[in-house]
Amino acid sequence: MEIQDIIRPENKVYSAPELLDQNVHMHYCPGCSHGVIHKLLAEVIAEMGLAEKTVGVSPVGCAVFAYNYIDVDWVEAAHGRAPAVATAISRLWPEDVVFTYQGDGDMSAIGTAESIHAANRGENIVMVFVNNAIYGMTGGQMAPTTLVGQKTATTPYGRRVDLNGHPLEITNLMAILDGTCYVTRQSVHTPANVRKTKAALKKAFQNALDKKGTSVVEVVATCNSGWKMSPEKANEWMAEHMFAKYPLGDLKDVK
């Protein structure tokens, strides 16, 4: 069978999600996990028929331009304030589904108060937390989630507990709050993990529709540029080091 006989519309089994704007190139570095997570969000929103009732709140960080890529309404928030912004939109438009997209600086450093309190109030929102243990956009500085010993621009000799404190497992904190209904930690470094993350996002969006409270989907991710590795090596490093501190799986799933 010739290739052109296979490449026919009726045989297509995978294509770029329609809600991912094909007219713009994503600005992310080659191999960046953000692209995969964006793709999954676009797929989930389209498949659940939510394109005309979803509002995304983008963070400050590498994903600040998420609004250029996923074809839903967006509000770009000040650094760390996405959960507060999402709270208001969700309360004022209760039929809408509102999600935040936050990095480790946004969620676990400058926006800790907003994140914890939105989750504790049980706002009917989805919080997507991309944890790559580094500040990518500003040039690879330490994040609260940076591993002990990990080198960054502000921990050039490796993170030291005596100087920089411990890596913050904010998702574990979220899981103990009564306002959260679903807290999970996923990754997108293998096809199987991509499928699991998509299922997690779907469940989270369904929870928001069902008014069950706050869902937190952490995606343990790579920042190959910040980590100064190839995308492939970054995935290996993540599996070897990050998952020990940030193990994958559900932390909470209220039925």
Binding site: M1, D5, I6, I7, R8, N11, K12, V13, Y14, S15, A16, P17, L20, Q22, H25, M26, Y28, P30, G31, C32, S33, H34, G35, V36, K39, V188, H189, T190, P191, V194, R195
Partner: peptide, 19 residues
């Protein structure tokens, strides 16, 4: 046509066909 490549592609630039 297993889609593994497309699933992990961060730039959504792969389409997959299968017969």
């Amino acid at each position: 046509g297993c889609c593994s490549c497309a699933l992990v592609c961060p730039d959504a630039c792969i389409e997959v066909y299968r017969v």
